[in-house]
Design a protein around this nucleic acid. Structure first.
Lengths: 204, 204
DNA sequence: TGTACATCAGTGAACGCGCGTTCACTGATGTAC
DNA sequence: TGTACATCAGTGAACGCGCGTTCACTGATGTAC
């Protein structure tokens, strides 16, 4: 049953995609190799034709998760000036839709407390993803003329991620929604992105 | 080797204390019953004289963690007027010391992404802890005269927890410290607690 | 163009380890008489 | 006051399950000649 040249890499990609979602939904320890392979329509023995170990899969899966986030971010903001890019990203991120979509949401929110227990490899991939995201934010923030954009980006983003994370743990749905709205407004206000200012014009 | 009446409850408390710390350091799945018992100076077989199951221990351990947080909070703020209580708690919580002390720190930061994979029992205990903490914050915030204190408390707290969580994942120590300082100042400013205002007087 | 051989993604059984849980047993102390 | 018995926190071996990993094998397709 030898397959065409593209077949293997296609299968590989499919496995990583499934794992990337399962990772965010179930966490690294509850993600089971056999289950992932079954979901990909394969048996678990074939796993090692694609990955050196479960840990290697986890590292690829977390990279895939960050890439997905980056794709979303670019799709939403490409071509927009910093102020609109920031506002759009904040609205997208600090939202009930994100809260309710753990499997395809931000890996930082889904996995932050798992981090210290993972391999060096995994943590390095995670760290690279965080850095890249903060860098993008910092560039927009710099474009808006703020001083110390890296520092502000980190602080702003921590409020965004915290809002989504806490909105997931709060059992009162109404309070959870209000928390998100309140955090969103505050974060935008910190960057001078309140709705009135936004509708004014396009100048950064 | 029958022991005095108080002995069993003393042992029980000791086990829960050790587990409560291990839970925050290693997470629920990596916390091993035998290891906890060994740390308590016992063998793993005796575990079931104290707990129905590992899950029962986890529920007690998370309750213990929230109680510890509450004790710290009261120790720091008892007798202070709302504005000083808030400022003190924020300084205590959004700090490098908290970031570096995962085992004795806030369980919300240490365990938020583990939550959805845990038992109903565990999640209920967690939820109760979160609610109680938000309630305390809301009371202080109400005491400062803000409208919709529950909503504001949730939003404020999400920024606090997010700051500590992200400060733990950022590998650049300097940025991590700055992130905390920036978040702390912003959070206090939202509540009208900037240092100048604080040194003015004591009126709430 | 046809034949023999090599390749290698995928199969499925088996192994080994960690870990939660069970269980027969121990032995110091409390209680009944 | 002394003796027999009950209690029960704790011991340590064993069990069973989930799961990561290994391995001999398969068989369709590519390549050499």
């Amino acid at each position: 049953m030898r397959y065409s040249e593209a077949h293997k890499s296609e299968t590989h990609r499919r496995i990583v995609g499934i794992a990337s979602r399962a990772l965010r939904e179930k966490g690294p320890e509850r993600l089971a190799v056999a289950e992932i392979m079954r979901a990909a329509g394969l048996t678990h023995g074939g796993f090692y034709a694609h990955f050196r170990s479960k840990d290697a899969l986890l590292a690829e899966a977390i990279r895939g998760a960050f890439e997905g986030l980056k794709r979303n971010l670019h799709r939403l903001t490409d071509g927009l000036p910093p102020r609109h890019a920031l506002a759009t990203f904040i609205d997208f991120y600090v939202s009930a839709a994100h809260r309710d979509n753990r499997g395809q949401g931000c890996p930082i929110v889904a996995l932050n407390s798992d981090l210290p227990r993972q391999s060096k490899n995994f943590r390095a991939a995670f760290d690279a993803g965080v850095s890249q995201l903060l860098e993008t934010l910092a560039q927009w923030i710099a474009g808006r003329g703020f001083a110390e954009p890296e520092k502000l980006a980190a602080s702003i983003f921590s409020a965004m991620a915290g809002a989504v994370a806490l909105s997931r743990t709060v059992s009162d749905k109404g309070l959870s929604d209000e928390l998100l709205a309140s955090a969103r407004e505050n974060i935008k206000a910190r960057l001078g992105l309140n709705d009135a200012a936004l509708s004014e014009g396009v100048a950064p």
